[in-house]
Structures are given as C-alpha cells and as structure tokens.
C-alpha cells in the first residue's frame, strides 16, 4: 500500500485501524533497525519501536505531509532514541563514555560478532561517538540516506551534517587503526 493510500484510509475512522496496521507492517523493519543501531540491545529496541509507532498513531492525524511519511517517522524514532539515551545518562548520572562502554559491552556479548575482530572494533569505534554524531554516521553510512533527507530527519543543516559525518569517519578510522596495532 502506498503512503498516500495509507494516509487517506487513516483519515476514515472505518478504515483507520487497517491503514495503521499496514503502516506498521511497511516500516517496522526500518524503524526497528534504526533504533537497534542506536541502543544495541534488542529488548530496548523492541520497547522503543513500539513507542515510536504509538507516537505515530497519536500524531498522524496532524501530519501535514510537508515531508515524506518515512522521513517523518524516522524523525520520531530518532527523537525517541536520543531521549532514551539521554534519560539513561541522567538516571544513572553516567558520563558519555560510560554509556558508550555499556553499549560496547552489549555489542561484545552479541554472538553475531564473535570472531570478527575488525567488525567488533568498528562497532566499538562507532559507539564511542557522541549520540548525535553516531546518528549521523548511521544514517549516512548504513542507510545511505541523502544529506537533504538527513537534514529533515535531524533538523540540522546539510553543511553541518557533512562536517559531522567527516569528523565521525575520521574518529572511527583512527580508533580501529589504533585498536588493530
């Protein structure tokens, strides 16, 4: 089902649930993996993914279609992730590096990464980045999202995003190089 069709059906109370069910089915994987890359842990990603779609439900009626539906959903998911990581840091009074270390520990415990030292070092390098820079890195490197679309998701200018990605890339490469020596 196309986005415009989903939105049209969502406006009609009789077909609203059906339309929203289609929306969840269409975007659940992208939202889940976008969140999972940020929080690493599956259970956290599961909770946040559900929260994202609940927020989408609450606000979809007011969606003005200035942006693409998926970009708008990505923005909600991004904010949920940043709020989650921020509240975790505030709750346990953790500095930035400790949250990164916690996520890295979860990453190391993941059996999918066992035996792949370079990949593990790459993931640990990414987790050392500040949350917003890590978000920019994920959107650009993994999702290959155009900068213009990233600007809509993050509310940051294209120039700032390019600079942020360049710095993130340099930090990641330096970290993996040092870790491999």
């Amino acid at each position: 089902m196309e986005d415009h069709e989903i939105l049209l059906k969502f406006q009609d109370p009789a077909s609203r649930n059906l339309a929203f069910n289609q929306l969840v089915r269409k975007y659940q994987r992208k939202v889940y993996w976008h969140v999972r890359k940020m929080v690493v842990d599956h259970d956290d990603a599961d909770d946040l993914t559900q929260d994202v779609f609940i927020k989408v439900w609450k606000h979809l009626e007011n969606f003005r279609q200035d942006a693409q539906l998926f970009t708008w959903i990505y923005r909600i998911a991004t904010n949920e992730c940043l709020n989650f990581l921020g509240s975790k840091r505030r709750k346990f009074l953790l500095p930035l590096t400790d949250v990164g270390a916690e996520l890295a520990a979860k990453m190391e415990a993941d059996p999918a990464l066992a035996g792949d030292e370079i990949e593990l070092n790459l993931q640990k390098a990414i987790l050392q980045l500040p949350d917003k820079q890590r978000l920019v890195f994920n959107l650009r490197y993994y999702d290959e999202m155009p900068y213009e679309q990233m600007a809509e998701v993050t509310g940051t200018s294209v120039g700032a995003l390019k600079a942020s990605y360049h710095h993130a890339l340099k930090k990641v490469e330096d970290y993996v190089t040092r870790a491999s020596e």
Binding site: N21, K37, F53, I54, M107, D116, E119
Partner: peptide, 28 residues
C-alpha cells in the same frame, strides 16, 4: 553492510509486532 553485525530479533518478531503495537493503541 546494510547494518552492524548484530544478532537478529526472534524469528516471528516482525510477524507479531503489528499486533502488539495495535493492542497498545489508546482505545483504538
């Protein structure tokens, strides 16, 4: 890679997720 090498979610996770989300909607 399209995403980091992380373990996959449970096999039927994406089959069940829409139902779980729908059940949490406020009174819908």
């Amino acid at each position: 890679r399209p995403r980091p090498l992380l373990s996959e979610p449970p096999a039927d996770y994406f089959d069940r997720l829409p139902t779980r989300v729908m059940s949490r909607l406020p009174g819908a």
